[in-house]
Design a binder for these strands. Sequence first.
DNA 1: GTGCATATGTAGCGAGTGCTACATATGCTT
DNA 2: AAGCATATGTAGCACTCGCTACATATGCAC
Lengths: 186, 186
Amino acid sequence: MSKLISKPQMSKESLLPLLAQHILEHGLGGASLRPLAKAAGTSDRMLIYHFGNKEQLLTDVLEHIAGIYSAALDAGVGDERAVTRQQCVARILAQGREPAMQPFMALWWEIVAGAARGIPGYREAAESMMAELLGWLETQMPADDPDPVGGARYLLTLIEGSLMLGVVGHARTAREGLLASDLSPS
Amino acid sequence: MSKLISKPQMSKESLLPLLAQHILEHGLGGASLRPLAKAAGTSDRMLIYHFGNKEQLLTDVLEHIAGIYSAALDAGVGDERAVTRQQCVARILAQGREPAMQPFMALWWEIVAGAARGIPGYREAAESMMAELLGWLETQMPADDPDPVGGARYLLTLIEGSLMLGVVGHARTAREGLLASDLSPS
DNA sequence: GTGCATATGTAGCGAGTGCTACATATGCTT
DNA sequence: AAGCATATGTAGCACTCGCTACATATGCAC
């Protein structure tokens, strides 16, 4: 009885999107091979076969996710330049609150936690992602900003602080904080 | 052969400091009963006996740690009031970078990550801790501050953003951001 | 056809997980 | 002394973990 049903012929590339989806939903820490394999329609056996070991698999998936995130960033903000710093911050915060961004946010804080805990690889991953975000933010600064480089760093600090406060149920605190900053003309 | 060696007569209260120590070192997520028990000089069997289940144990330990942190906060900053907002921020950031604070920081980001992931209990815990920190920060504002309530929220956002950037290897970015803020008189 | 590299299924290993069953030991109350 | 609530040790259960051993199946080169 020959099995002629189908030979999906899977590969790293074909697996990565499904694995990324699962990681975004369930996180890095709780991810174990067998559920990942089921999500990707294969077996733990094959995940190890393709990626060598779990750590390499997670590294590859993270890289894949970073690519998706970059694209989402550019697509999410309109292409007309912000006029004021306040407007710039508001737009990015609004985008960060989008439901579609939630899985990325959850994953991001998990990476931050790993970096703080000193888990090998996490700090490096977080550092490069943050560097990329900073570079992107510089391009989003108002065209007539007197100090786009320093300003981007200032806004990044405010944005990340606001996002964190939002995550822990203090979105209102962050909003009131921004109102008391120099971004809001009295 | 009677065993007269010693009867440690343990209790929740006597276990909590040792458990807290272990959690601060190794994190919440990776904590499992047997290593915790070894750290506390007892058995997994007795941890369940005293706390009922693992979740309750972690809840109790977290509460214990929050108490320690509160005390460390007050002790860490000198008792003379800051004169400027900039000074206020600088002092708190300096304290957050102290080696002794590192375990608390790592635990904090783990809680934030759990809150972002929606793990039951984490958001509530984080929210109340942050509320307490905000209240404390209001008392640390300069005496002549024109808007201590809004200002505390503004500074909290900047501080948490700076701490996060520091964790991911972007302490310099945060520093330059603060230099470009209204806290640094040009 | 005959090898041979690539790909996949089945079974399992040794370690660790939270938690429980059962047997005691201890010290207080009556 | 008897009974009883509190406390503790020993063993183990049913499960998951990352990973491996072994057996194949497939398709291509010669």
